[in-house]
Amino acid sequence: MQNKLLSIEEAVADYTWDGMTYCNGAALPVGSCSIAFGKEMVKQGRKNLNVICHCGSQQINLLAAVGAVDRVEVGFSGLEVYGFAAGLNRAVTSGKTRMEDYSNGAMALRFFGGAMNWPFVPATVSIHNDQQWCSADYPDEYPCNRKIPEITDPFTGKKYGAFRTIRPDVAAIHVTMADIYGNAIMLGTEWNRFEMSRASKKVVLVADQIVHTDCMRQYPNLVRIISEVVDAVVYWPYAAWPQASPGLYDSDEEHMFYMNKMMKTEADTEAYCDQWVKNWNSHEEYMALIGDEKIEKISKTATAFLMDPYRKWIRSDDEIRELQNMTKG
């Protein structure tokens, strides 16, 4: 097996490009999400993205707020109790970002279909409503029959819809822990990360912890993302901040509201990026920016016990640095 550790700068440089179809690997808007990866994309100036945003998150909120997103497909675009996603919504209402709506279940099925390499999956939802009739890609057609076209069940003759399946160019998937080869364990709901890891042409894992492969050999049933489909592994503790990572840290309530407030205007977004996105060049600086007090607070999570079985396999920062150097040159 190949050691796939890459720095976040290398991973973004190697696996993202302007105009790509990008997918944020996340577990709903408050939880797990590869937000650090999205921030690095902003730093490297990626633009004209087609984002498969299978759930809202601060990552998509930020990417849209800086004007990097031309088109987005969503099941849900908000931040749950933290409110509507101000940056994403600004991009949509201004016409900068075209948004295609589906149901959450539809997005899951479309990843499943993509993983199977099927041309379409039958739709029993997102039909007979405006998710079917309204298309941002064909705004002049109402009711539209090109987004979720009507099909006939060959067995019963009943009418349903057809969902286009999803094959993103790259998914950057947040996981609780991975080994250096790309085997990963996710704590908390997977949301669509299992299907997405098989549907995407390339997969980058963004892991809060790197563990020994012995951990995977102890809990092989829990390894839902496998090295066989993974191209790169980025080690980045607190990668989902200000969102949560079950077992490791809670969402940063104060910063969730603050960040979303800053996404409301272009000027505030720029100020936010200067301070919180572009103002670090290493993981140490990223941690310093969050601050010890905040780190301590969010790390006192009621879910911490979930990590207990895995702790003995966690690799140290020094060990990981050494392993990372081995992948260079």
Partner: peptide, 19 residues
């Protein structure tokens, strides 16, 4: 209007409620 233009106010989408 028989057209799908950007909304004046964007809400959240359906999420799982549609399912």
């Amino acid at each position: 209007v028989g057209k799908y233009l950007p909304p004046r106010v964007r809400l959240n989408g359906s999420g799982g409620a549609s399912d």
